[in-house]
Nucleic acid binder design. Structure first.
Lengths: 186, 186
DNA sequence: GTCTATAGCTTGATAGAC
DNA sequence: GTCTATCAAGCTATAGAC
């Protein structure tokens, strides 16, 4: 009998896990097959362009998750501080309290231009979303932009220090200081 | 006639360049051969353990550079603010104003335990060096440690945002705020 | 949409001449 | 300390059956 289709959601989740840990070049088909339980030809059936297609599908999928989990609070009504706190909670969940690594980091080592552009667009959305909070808190557009970029950097850097030092605290501190970072005057 | 020995310094510098851009798995022998001008067997002659040996030699070599270029100002006499400024200048040079990527980031994706331990030790030295500045500025040991970790995270994150967004400013801002980050009260 | 089977290329690694 | 030559293993990719 014909094997049932493995749900897209599961495929995406498992591919994501591999790319997060190994990056683009580090993720071999052997890894991707083992993670999904699908054989190579099946992966090519779903992603005709091979790994490049997979990576971009994963970036889109994870980008959607990130939007609903983290970015959407920025759009809603309410005081900027509260919205920033909500985003921090979303980030804690999204990054598994620092256990997960960030695709925008791991996928931007020696991968193709399409992927790099995709990653840049994703980070741009993230920064813009943070900047909106800062503007709503009364900061100037230019300062808001800087604060937003620096907040993203604090989180990405927190993830790296957490990864290298084997402690989640640096990442968690970056979340704790997020609201102040985005909304405090000066 | 027998080909002359290619100076260690040049070999290290060129290998470093490759590992910085491609990470451990991304750096193939083809890449390493092209960068050094040495053939595969010659690389194995210098590094009997292959890539793992190369990476660890590169980490040691770059670690020494980092020590003299960045960490040594922390040991000297003088006001903490001045020393922090000196370190910021050293970091600007070391990271090519944001053009260079950090080995502690790129080499910690799916590489062997020895390399991960080496990277952790290097970052530990870095954090400790920053923390000393903070203590000399009068901060408590615990706060100094947190400030130091967060400062390293700000720099690593600045490098990532700079890399993804194609702008050196996030990294350069992380340097500009370094002295205050390490020495301000509270 | 899954699988088996196969192809050719690239990889990491070694032996041995100069 | 460099090189040429060679190797098995792993890699990406495709053809075709069910």
């Amino acid at each position: 009998m014909r094997p049932a289709k493995l749900p897209d959601q599961q495929v995406f989740a498992r591919l994501t896990e591999v790319f997060r840990r190994k990056g683009y070049q580090g993720a071999s088909y052997a890894d991707l097959m083992a993670a999904t339980g699908l054989v190579k030809a099946s992966l090519y059936h779903r992603f005709p362009g091979g790994k490049e297609d997979m990576v971009n599908a994963v970036l889109s999928h994870v980008g959607n998750e990130f939007s609903t989990c983290v970015l959407s609070p920025a759009q809603e009504a309410g005081p900027p501080e509260k919205r920033a706190q909500q985003m921090a909670r979303g980030l804690a969940k999204f990054y598994g309290s620092g256990r997960n690594w960030c695709l925008l980091d791991t996928l931007t080592l020696a991968s193709d231009r399409r992927t790099l552009k995709h990653a840049k667009r994703s980070m741009e959305l993230w920064v813009e979303s943070f900047a909106r909070i800062a503007r709503d808190a009364g900061l100037s557009p230019a300062l808001s932009r800087r604060r937003a970029e620096d907040a993203v950097a604090a989180i990405e850097g927190g993830l790296i220090v957490s990864r290298v030092m084997h402690s989640r605290r640096p990442f968690l501190r970056a979340l704790l200081t997020l609201p102040d970072r985005l909304t405090s005057a000066g």
